[in-house]
Design a protein around this nucleic acid. Structure first.
Lengths: 214, 214
DNA sequence: TCTCCAGTTCGTACATGTACGATACAACGT
DNA sequence: ACGTTGTATCGTACATGTACGAACTGGAGA
């Protein structure tokens, strides 16, 4: 029965942690992203400020938890998206992803633009794909395109390249809203179309293989 | 003679500002990026902490000043780069840029990955190209490629797309060093080659024109 | 039952960015 | 000469993240 006690402990801890995340979420909704402070959060749940640190390593950790929630919602939204043609399904990933990033710049930033990148306990990238469900969907849809003969090459490499461009696009649109990209959505579409068209014209080698020239 | 007095004032102020930047630079070199604090910086130049705020709006402003210095060095390095073939010259911009970003992740982050994007006084993107000299070189070399018939379309649009991909590449490599991109330089080369090859296969419309499909 | 221990809670303290307002001083108009 | 005004400097104070260690608590072994 020692294990069951352990488990109960863990469950209680997990519950309090989610309570904290929920409170943080509400706080952000009410007072904005920078309105979230440890002291306010602690007061919300009736704890002392330092007690929060029993559940999160630091403030960034809380922001990451919030962002992860948001990214899971994104993944769900992507998967719900109608996907008749595999190429359209792939493009839908990128446009949904972009819409999410532009609509949730704070969450996007905490995941992709901070120095403290948190890979939760495990050190491998496997964990990152686990923590970033959108990436899994992306790879799956790339594989569908490869299977349908619309794309050719290593699916992970293709997905990574798409991710790179998608991230570059979103990230610049977020950071330099005044730069004359034209309509943000149009620019996203442009990059999306450009990438799919260009990728379909080549056989993309896996990431481990170095292209020699340049 | 009122003007000359004004000017002397301004010059003195500018001098003190650069002295602060220099001190900040030394501080960062000696104690690392997070070792730079307002109090330490003030002590270095023999001022009270709050006096720093007569020369910089806030701490970010100091970091931006440091980063701008670094980016000017980058632009100089790029322009010094041998450039016989226009396409090679263009690729050199991207690889130098990437090398800079990977070698100076902190400076890169303060310019491209923070929320407080500072456009110094003017509100137009013209100022941004002024402040980011690397972009000017990029556009110039794209124009050379277009003139040589190696690329086709609107130079600014092509440059912006290259910038987008370059930024995405660097930014992901900085944020997720553990992700299996393979060798960072190889991945940079891959994206660089891919983009130049793909762009040369199309006629790129200006940014204001929306592609219809997707 | 008593002791001990691991883990949770939290009081205190410190470094930091920076808002606010006081002070001092230089240039100017009268 | 004298008040006025703008500006550079800075003392103080506050909010914030968080390090440190004390106090508590609930269960395990003696």
């Amino acid at each position: 029965m020692t294990l069951s006690v352990q488990k109960r402990r863990e469950k209680q801890k997990a519950e309090l942690r989610s309570e904290l995340v929920a409170a943080a979420h509400k706080l952000v909704q009410e007072e904005g992203y920078e309105g979230l402070t440890i002291r306010k959060l602690a007061k919300r749940v009736g704890y002392a400020p330092m007690s929060v640190y029993s559940y999160f390593a630091d403030k960034q950790d809380i922001l990451f938890a919030l962002a992860e929630d948001a990214f899971e919602t994104l993944a769900r939204r992507i998967e719900e998206h109608p996907a008749d043609d595999p190429v359209e399904a792939l493009k839908a990933v990128m446009t949904e992803y972009a819409a999410f990033g532009l609509g949730n710049p704070n969450e996007y930033r905490t995941v992709f633009m901070t120095e403290k990148t948190r890979l939760p306990e495990g050190r491998s990238y496997e964990d990152m794909e686990e923590g970033n469900p959108a990436m899994k969907v992306l790879i799956k849809r790339v594989e569908a395109c490869v299977a349908a003969g619309k794309l050719k090459g290593d699916p992970r490499a293709i997905a990574t390249m798409l991710w790179t461009v998608g991230h570059g696009t979103i990230s610049l649109l977020i950071t330099f809203p005044f730069y004359p990209f034209g309509d943000p959505e149009a620019y996203v579409k442009r990059m999306c179309n450009f990438m799919v068209a260009s990728l379909s014209a080549q056989d993309i080698p896996p990431l481990t293989e170095t292209p020699v020239d340049c």
